[in-house]
Design a protein around this nucleic acid. Structure first.
Lengths: 187, 187
DNA sequence: GTCTATAGATTGATAGAC
DNA sequence: GTCTATCAATCTATAGAC
């Protein structure tokens, strides 16, 4: 397997469980089966690894969102699939969206990583805004007045619902929190 | 001043900025003006400090919520004040609700701290449920169908809005995310 | 209650051989 | 690309004097 890829995969799981400070080159070393020092060949500094992580994550998510958008399904269905992404990202309530996991202590992160997080959120809101606009015209999402605000609220709701469910260790808390949004989707 | 109190105050600010792993006894030592080892007299282990922190925080918040509730204002006004608590907790976009700050990497926290976070969220949702119930009858909050779900969504929204605003470094992102909720409050 | 001194572990990172 | 060896820094925590 590609070592670099394996490092990224292992690191991503760790960050999404324990945050940026919750994994070390020592951990990666054990789990990937490579010496600690060798990791520095692929990622000279830990921040390089974190940056590669968030860039890869952002691109992967937006490939999914692009795929959803280009199928030209009803807006309600697109929103459902968006919620599914966040639901699945929760795993067994032990992983967060990478973006949420890194958002917690941004002061300790460098400028590049922070701007990647911002970029992720900006793109997500733009995508959601289109969905809510469509939902208003194709009438598959109810109570849409300001798509931009709906988009911002939706993204915040997903992130918060993940946090709450994760802390409580119960995915039902995620479901309860998003139930109101889901009820606005008309089939 | 009371040393213990000073330690808690300083630690709380640090945790809300950088998370649980984002502060050390060394930091506290410098900022409070006491030697590192002396902190162990007040809080033998770091987890003892964290536990004291979240307990104190939870109690303080619920004294505020109790105060709001007992004034028997319209539900819409009570909800406004709830939102204000989270808005103010954001500070200049560099502090989170202690609960949000600690929720990010719960696997690294012990059982007691986790259960305090859960308790905080349970109490917050109970308080909010009452407010939405009242809002449905006194008609100061619109579109209330299931107060319990509204409460869960509201709490998640607050936490997520803090995260997004914090990452973006712009309090306007908080405002945009909560605008929809605020618009449901009828004056 | 606070101090000095120190232990013991872990961390991110580097140099240089292969 | 991966290894061994090592470094300097930082961290939580403890022992014992005052």
């Amino acid at each position: 397997m590609d070592t670099r890829e394996a490092l990224l995969n292992t690191a991503e799981q760790a960050v999404r469980r324990w945050g940026y400070n919750g994994f070390s080159y020592g951990d990666l070393s054990t789990k990937v089966g490579i010496r600690k020092a060798s990791i520095h060949y692929h990622f000279p500094k830990k921040e390089d690894l974190a940056l590669a992580l968030i860039v890869r994550y952002r691109k992967a998510v937006f490939i999914m969102l692009e795929a959803i958008a280009t199928q030209h399904k009803p807006a309600g269905q697109q929103l459902t699939e968006f919620i599914n992404i966040y639901r699945q990202a929760l795993g067994g309530c032990d992983t967060l969206c990478l973006c949420v996991a890194l958002s917690s202590g941004p002061d300790s992160l460098n400028k590049d990583i922070l701007s990647e997080i911002t970029k992720f959120q900006t793109e997500a809101k733009a995508w959601l805004t289109s969905v809510f606009e469509l939902g208003r015209s194709d009438i598959t999402i109810t109570k849409v007045t300001d798509p931009e605000k709906d988009a911002a609220a939706c993204l915040a709701l997903m992130q918060g619902a993940q946090l709450v469910a994760r802390a409580g260790g119960d995915i039902e808390e995620f479901e309860t929190a998003v139930a109101g949004l889901i009820s606005r989707i008309s089939t």
